Amino acid sequence: MRIGELARRAGVSTRALRYYEQQGLLAARRATNGYREYDESDLRLVTEIRSLLTVGFTLEDARPFVECLRAGNRSGDACPESVEVYRRKLAEIDDQIRTLLARRAEVAAQFAEACPGCALRTGGARS
């Protein structure tokens, strides 16, 4: 399939596909006329990349998942390198949660001091 069809089927732009190629995550074959050619396995790679980006992974984070798929595994997370990326990402998210909870506690304390009679609801709404 050509780049336009892959983009349409994967729900991405052709520009994104060219960028993935530039980053070494996608390898296009060239037809005799110079057009990029892709197959179903490329669609699977792009789908994997997009699903990872959607939940906050970077393109560099996606690399082990892509390599795992290229190695013939049914899933991009079947390899130890991919599992390690999951571990690292979860640790990053846990750190962000701790930071946000500490920040929330500080803001809630300032709010309680500024408005002693005000009730603080979950979600931060005032009553």
Rank of each mutant, 00 (worst) to 15 (best):
N33R: 07
C118R: 12
S41M: 09
A119G: 03
A62T: 13
I3E: 04
V66R: 02
L100V: 06
M1E: 00
S13M: 03
K89T: 08
I97N: 02
K89L: 11
L45R: 03
Y19V: 01
E67M: 15
S75W: 06
N33A: 02
L6K: 03
T32I: 08
L17E: 00
A108L: 05
L25F: 10
A109I: 01
G56I: 05
E106R: 04
L52W: 04
Q110L: 10
A7I: 02
Q22H: 02
A27W: 08
L120R: 00
Q96W: 10
L53D: 01
A112K: 12
Y35C: 07
A71C: 06
T122H: 08
N33L: 05
K89P: 03
R74P: 14
L69H: 01
A119W: 01
R70W: 14
Q96Y: 14
L26R: 00
R2L: 04
R9M: 09
A62E: 12
A114K: 09
L43F: 08
L43H: 00
L101T: 13
I3R: 01
E92A: 15
S82P: 01
N73D: 06
R30G: 07
S82N: 08
E106P: 00
R15F: 03
R8E: 15
C118P: 00
R15G: 05
Q23I: 07
Q22A: 14
A114G: 14
L25P: 05
R87P: 09
L25T: 03
A62S: 15
L53A: 03
G72S: 13
G76V: 04
G24Q: 08
V46P: 00
G56D: 03
D42S: 14
R18G: 06
A91I: 12
A105P: 14
C118Q: 12
E81T: 03
Q110A: 11
V46A: 10
P64F: 14
F65T: 12
T47Q: 08
A112I: 07
E81K: 06
A10P: 09
I3P: 06
S82I: 00
Y38S: 01
R44C: 06
V12M: 12
V12Y: 10
V55R: 03
A27P: 02
L6F: 03
R9K: 09
F111W: 07
R103Q: 12
A31R: 15
E60L: 11
L90S: 06
I97V: 08
R88W: 01
L25S: 06
R15N: 03
A108P: 02
A7W: 06
R36C: 12
D61N: 13
R30D: 02
T99M: 09
A16L: 13
D77L: 07
N33F: 11
R103N: 10
L120V: 04
E81D: 14
S127Q: 00
Y86I: 04
G24E: 10
G24N: 11
A7D: 07
Q96H: 10
